[in-house]
Design a protein around this nucleic acid. Structure first.
Lengths: 356, 356
DNA sequence: GCCGGGTACTAATACGCGTTACTAACGCGC
DNA sequence: GCGCGTTAGTAACGCGTATTAGTACCCGGC
């Protein structure tokens, strides 16, 4: 038969103390002083009974659940393609664990999108919202209500602490790398529609780099992709059909993989005919053919920083309104100086087999 | 100033009913009959007050937290490289959501590995353990205690319901595909060390296919990789140095990407000189060069099936002790008939630049 | 017209349980 | 008798649910 769950009363009885004392000992409650002997007795009793406090009872009494919520505000396709999600989650979990918190993950569901209930029902003590969007009313409501929420990503005009990388600066660096190699006809494919702030920022960095170098902007050389490799392939083939370019900055490695496929299908080679710079540095970036030059994103640290900020916010400690983590240009083999012999080889018009 | 959280008492007062009735209405408690008029009044009162039950209080009273735990038993590197984790998580979350459950994710930490506390402390109502390992004492303890746990993956000898694919059959199919193309000298690189059941099973499928075709096994043509592309590159270059082969079955797409890099570095071409079949069908598989022939793994469905099984278990409904989901061979362009002209082109001994 | 017996709802009460704020006490040294 | 370091005792936090009790209403029988 099943043994009854020990409760704090049982521990108290076994240690010959009151329930209050048990609580003080087991939680190291600050501002209380318990004699070493008593503390020892309580710990021993708890260990002997295999005592585990009931999480719900604890949450009810303490008013804190020791749970952080991670809201994935991205679309399902985007989540599926996100090669860095696992690392970000690990980082968040690491930060949480350091303060005995756990992480509840809530993939956003369009028809059941009231993720604010997570805090309103005290199911979590706070939220990290990943991939925030401007059209998110829930988020505005939470911000107005003063809920403990940290953004992973950027959302101008919302008064919430955020953790992100310098998308503009990083893109700038990527494009400067291409310019430094001698490229002038440089295209840009965004990682997502421009309604996503990260996409807009990366495009902005690209434009700024061109301007700094005194290169005229050619609007026909920029286009928007949408998270996955298929969109990168589609977009790149459009770009190739539209104008002449010797390099392209693709603001996502996954999209870049699709773009490279399109470049090959057009009968061109990377980097001989077209140089490609990606963004994210997903684990597979170095194993592509050719190994992808890209911007390294500190995925784990992004998650961890968001977790730290959220925990600070929950505990009333000071929080930076904006944390910007450093990125790095990783030069591999998908970029090279432009091919002087190449005028415009459009002998193989892009033929696009449907992706399997 | 902050308005006080409404509680069920407030809803009861506003609707002019008792707290009991409020609870019955809001939870659709079976076995009770509430008149439509009363039900209406209660729902209206709750809506007007913006009432949200306190999750901890609810969990305490009901004895259920409406939370599922997902324990990632894999190593951090493995989690980072797992391109399908997001999909699996989404599937689990979808199953959970259907019964108003949420998902708490617990990446395994070696020095704080007591994930069983999640159920013992009633923090979650049950666990999905992903990537179970034979050396997991915690798991044995939970199984013995009759805790609601479902395995995602296989672990012979443990009496817990599990959800998995037929690794042996799928590998068999992959290798049969190579044999069907005319290959006889077929290598195998596992996805992980053989202590992982999935790795052992996939190797077994490979061996069975060879045996069925009457092909002698060459032990020097099999080797174990370890989750990531780097290990695939390393292992493949060893295999190439060891013996002659015209095809290789790599039991993980990520590892296969590394293997293909090694093949190229050895001056060989895929599939002309060496055909490659992968396993998993990660989102990028079709965008590799060449697009990878592989086994499609239903990642979302695996997560969902695990969730369904766990919820069934929690609610005392009958549960299949083993759920096997179908896989599929996806033929792309990394496989072709063997090259008749090729004896053994070892003119370019593998030179291995360190991965960046 | 009154009573007994259902039926259909709803009320009232108590318990489950760890934390924490508060008050009170106890022992001891001075 | 005071102060200090420790510990005890109590109540409140919240919601679900089992139990026990009504209440209101309808119906048939006398």
């Amino acid at each position: 038969m099943q043994v009854r769950r020990p409760k704090s009363d049982d521990v108290a009885a076994r240690a010959g103390v009151s329930r209050t004392t048990v609580s003080f000992v087991l939680n190291d409650t600050p501002g209380t002083s318990i004699s070493p002997a008593t503390r020892e007795r309580v710990l021993a009793a708890a260990a002997e009974l295999g005592y585990q406090p009931h999480a719900s009872a604890r949450g009810l009494a303490a008013g804190r659940t020791h749970t952080l919520g991670l809201v994935l505000r991205q679309s399902p396709e985007q989540v599926a393609e996100d090669a860095l999600l696992a690392e970000t989650l690990r980082g968040l979990a690491a930060a949480a664990r350091a303060e005995r918190y756990r992480v509840l993950v809530e993939p956003y569901a369009p028809n059941d999108g009231a993720y604010g209930d997570l805090v309103r029902s005290h199911r979590t003590d706070g939220l990290v919202v990943s991939g925030p969007r401007t059209d998110d009313r829930e988020l505005a409501g939470l911000a107005a209500a003063g809920a403990p929420v940290v953004l992973q990503g950027s959302l101008p005009g919302v008064d919430l602490p955020s953790v992100d990388v310098d998308n503009v600066g990083a893109s700038n660096l990527a494009v400067e790398h291409l310019i430094g190699l001698g490229h002038r006809a440089i295209g840009c494919i965004t990682n997502a529609p421009l309604t996503y702030t990260a996409a807009a920022e990366r495009l902005q960095g690209y434009l700024a780099a061109l301007e700094d170098a005194g290169i005229e902007r050619h609007p026909e050389l920029t286009a928007e992709a949408a998270f996955d490799a298929a969109s990168g392939r589609r977009t790149m083939s459009q770009l190739l059909a539209r104008g002449s370019l010797t390099a392209v900055f693709v603001a996502s490695d996954v999209v870049a993989f699709g773009a490279i496929a399109a470049i090959r299908e057009a009968g061109l080679r990377v980097p001989t005919d077209v140089s490609v710079v990606g963004f994210d540095d997903i684990p597979l970036a170095g194993f592509f053919d050719p190994p992808l030059t890209t911007i390294h994103l500190p995925a784990f640290d992004l998650g961890r920083a968001a977790g730290v900020a959220l925990l600070d916010r929950i505990h009333g400690r000071p929080v930076n309104s904006r944390t910007v983590l450093p990125t790095e240009l990783v030069v591999r083999s998908s970029t090279a100086p432009p091919n002087p012999r190449r005028g415009r080889s459009r002998d193989h018009p892009a033929s696009l087999p449907a992706p399997t």
